[in-house]
Nucleic acid binder design. Structure first.
Lengths: 226, 226
DNA sequence: CAGTATCCGATGCGATACTG
DNA sequence: CAGTATCGCATCGGATACTG
């Protein structure tokens, strides 16, 4: 039996959004992802077939619409009004999770690619350097092939690169993946890690000074802990 | 693989509360149920073994505490602070469900026992008669053995009876299960159904007049529809 | 790249029976 | 009443391969 067989609106909502993975897909869409590949990247452990299945479910529930993309192949997935109104629920889950579900940050939870993607997504554009700048991240304790990332900052574009783009690095950020994740989540203040050296910056003072300005943390970093 | 393997607080919350049935159990607890049997009644299609399993999960997640009950056997399940803070999420699901997930009210969703239990639970105590009163509900279209209920109203106690308590009925409420459910959910105004006769009251004018006062509807009945 | 189709193993969960 | 133990099937979902 699929559903809950209840007329209660809570049960009816959960029949639609309560399935495994579904709300994480919605979270990705709320964060701005629109393409299949972006969703795969944002929810790495979900298989593509399950993602396709969930997208069908979300569409038939009226939460997303597929639209043909003007450029390139494939579709664009966009939240409908019903989908956007799931925002407060996702937000509520995040706040609750930050307060009550963060007992341990296990090794399996750490994911350099995800962290860098989050960082890239939420950069404070106003504070970024106005001239082309290359920033390298070196992460200790990340899996093989996951320890180096480059943020290529151009006036109108920001790229996260997995291979060295070729030109000169202006600022290097060194940290353990675990520490940087904790900073991102608001568990440790960035200023603290800069002072004790667990996050090191290497480059001209101008960029070192600006770094804390353009690195925005997780939207839940400031949630008050119990 | 059990979890989502992500450090994102949303994912971490969903690892705990995202499992099938779990949030419905929390909803019941938020509504005031504390005993195993009450939970079984509130979530009828969930098997007892799964309920026991979910209760273990909720306990180890710090969302509920089991306490020995002073009177009688068995335990009492009570929400912790973490559990009570799930209120906004459950509420959010209900609101969203009321707005977007109520396409059809299928026959399987109708459940006279659940509806009567909800009605009993949310009666407006102030407006109830101060003298002992017996109210009979006769529901058309309910399954066998589900078509008659009695609310026994005493100054300090309200009982929902499945068999006639033996003494005289003061007010009879006749309606189809579907109509009464729609009224409960806010889909039709009660006044409307009283006027067109789809909900009939039989008894002294005093009680007929008071009926709409003490019948409180679902907490989501007044949610604005899109 | 953006998915779809198929397969098969794990497990979730409902049914039933049992206990104090 | 308040659960627990066991079993067996359905389905979920991950892996792999395939298509336009």
């Amino acid at each position: 039996m699929r559903g809950y067989g209840q007329f209660c609106p809570v049960a009816q909502a959960l029949e639609v959004i309560g399935e495994r993975w579904t709300l994480l897909v919605v979270r990705e869409l709320l964060c701005g992802s629109t393409r299949f590949g972006e969703l795969v990247r944002g929810v790495p452990l979900m298989s593509r077939s399950v993602l396709a299945d969930r997208l069908r479910g979300l569409e038939s529930a009226g939460i997303i619409e597929r639209k043909a993309r003007s450029s390139g192949r494939g579709q664009s997935y966009e939240l409908t009004q019903a989908g956007r109104e799931l925002g407060p629920i996702v937000e509520g889950c995040g706040v609750w999770g930050q307060r009550w579900a963060r007992r341990k940050l296990s090794v399996e939870q750490l994911d350099a690619g995800l962290l860098m993607w989050d960082i890239r997504r939420s950069l404070n554009h106003e504070a970024l350097p106005k001239t082309p700048t290359l920033i390298e991240f070196r992460l200790r304790g990340a899996g093989r092939g996951q320890s180096r990332y480059w943020l290529r900052i151009e006036p109108q574009e920001i790229d996260l690169c997995l291979t060295h783009p070729g030109f000169e690095v202006d600022l290097t950020v060194r940290a353990s993946l675990r520490e940087l994740t904790k900073v991102w989540l608001g568990d440790i203040p960035l200023t603290h890690t800069l002072r004790d050296g667990s996050v090191e910056l290497d480059g001209p003072q101008r960029l070192r000074r600006a770094f804390p300005k353009w690195l925005k943390l997780s939207g839940f970093a400031k949630v008050e802990r119990p």
